[in-house]
């Protein structure tokens, strides 16, 4: 069966428990908002196809449990992602402070050229806001990330932020993309490419043992 897309890649949603990762995802893929879904246990994923610059981009988006101890499971998925959403809740200062921790974990476990984007979710709950938009902007700038405030509830900036990260991943893989444009192949699986590279990297690294 012919694939319905040109490029395939994986995005990962990270952030504290309860910031709205699953709601962002449901809004983006199904345009639905369920305030009462169950908490994510382990990992879950959904997919959607976008069209960017005439290229059909299939994205698989991985949703993760937010509690820190679940990283024993979720860490394995960092390595296989090309883009990461770092999500906090604008009504929770704590979830914002934890972004630094999430970002450093990404540095540690994800591939070097991973694309990241910062999301301040629940922007509709203005009266409960604890994190100013300026703070989000500044943090994003410090880390060299783009930044969006979103609301899964009112569907604010959802498509925009997902599309932006997808564009960034495409741009970061421009070389492969140009090959695609030259259209030798009819399909490009970035995810699979990265994975192969990841495996060879891993094998090389393990042979070397200690890096010093």
């Amino acid at each position: 069966m012919a694939k319905q897309y040109d490029v395939l890649f994986r995005l990962l949603l990270l952030g504290d428990s309860g910031v709205g990762k699953t709601c962002l995802l449901c809004r983006f893929t199904d345009n639905e908002f369920h305030p009462s879904h169950i908490s994510t246990i382990g990992v879950d994923f959904k997919m959607k196809t976008l069209e960017i610059d005439g290229i059909k981009v299939r994205i698989q988006i991985w949703d993760t449990a937010g509690q820190e101890r679940y990283q024993t499971i979720t860490k394995q998925y960092y390595r296989r992602a090309q883009g990461i959403f770092l999500v906090y809740d604008i009504t929770s200062e704590r979830s914002f402070q934890h972004i630094m921790k999430w970002a450093s974990d990404v540095d540690e476990y994800a591939p070097d050229n991973i694309q990241r984007i910062l999301i301040g979710n629940k922007s509709d709950e203005e009266e409960k806001r604890q994190v100013a938009t300026g703070q989000g902007n500044k943090l994003a700038k410090d880390y060299g990330m783009d930044f969006f405030e979103t609301s899964a509830s009112t569907n604010y900036n959802i498509t925009e932020s997902f599309t932006r990260l997808a564009e960034q991943v495409l741009a970061a893989n421009k070389k492969d993309l140009d090959l695609l444009r030259a259209s030798v192949t009819d399909e490009l699986n970035l995810a699979a490419l990265e994975e192969e590279e990841g495996i060879t990297d891993g094998a090389a690294a393990s042979q070397k043992g200690c890096w010093c």
Binding site: A103, S104, D107, E108, D112, C210, W211, C212
Partner: peptide, 22 residues
């Protein structure tokens, strides 16, 4: 590995150290 890296890059913040590591 951590001991080695820490010994070499003890002046850096941890994210940077891990970047170098990987």
């Amino acid at each position: 590995i951590k001991v080695c890296v820490c010994a070499r890059y003890s002046g850096f913040s941890s994210p940077l150290a891990s970047l170098l590591l990987f």
